[in-house]
Amino acid sequence: MSPSVIGLLIGAALGVVAVAFGFWAMVLVALLAAIGYGIGRAIEGKLDVRGVADALRGRRSS
């Protein structure tokens, strides 16, 4: 599946949640999806958790 199709499906799902349950439910679903995506990437070894933590703390890495 291409990134465009995945983005389309995610947008459609968030749209359905927004219509059915309201804006804040959509924001919660989007936040939880992003957290789940990050956890999945970290488990696969494709995300440097220490680098992300340093970036969030304002430390620069090169």
Rank of each mutant, 00 (worst) to 15 (best):
G22H: 04
L9M: 15
L28Y: 01
L56F: 10
G38T: 06
G22C: 08
L47M: 10
G51M: 07
I10R: 11
G58P: 09
A53Y: 06
E44T: 13
I39F: 08
I43P: 01
F21C: 07
V29N: 00
R57P: 03
S62E: 14
I35G: 02
G40V: 07
G51Y: 02
A33P: 04
L8R: 14
G15F: 05
V16C: 12
G22W: 02
S62T: 13
G58E: 08
I43N: 02
R60C: 06
A33T: 10
L14V: 12
L9I: 12
G58A: 10
A25Q: 13
A30W: 00
L14F: 10
G51P: 00
D48E: 04
V49G: 04
G38N: 02
A30G: 01
I43S: 04
A30P: 00
V27W: 01
V17A: 03
G15S: 10
A53M: 14
L32P: 06
A30C: 00
S62F: 15
L28Q: 04
V27M: 11
R57K: 13
D54V: 03
I10S: 07
S62M: 12
A20W: 01
I10Q: 09
G38W: 03
S2A: 12
S2T: 15
L31K: 01
V52T: 01
A55G: 06
A42Q: 11
L32I: 11
A20F: 03
A34N: 03
L32T: 08
G11L: 08
D48S: 11
V52A: 05
R41P: 00
A13S: 15
A25P: 02
W24M: 12
V52P: 03
L31E: 01
I35E: 07
P3Y: 12
G36W: 03
V17D: 02
G22A: 09
S2D: 14
D54M: 12
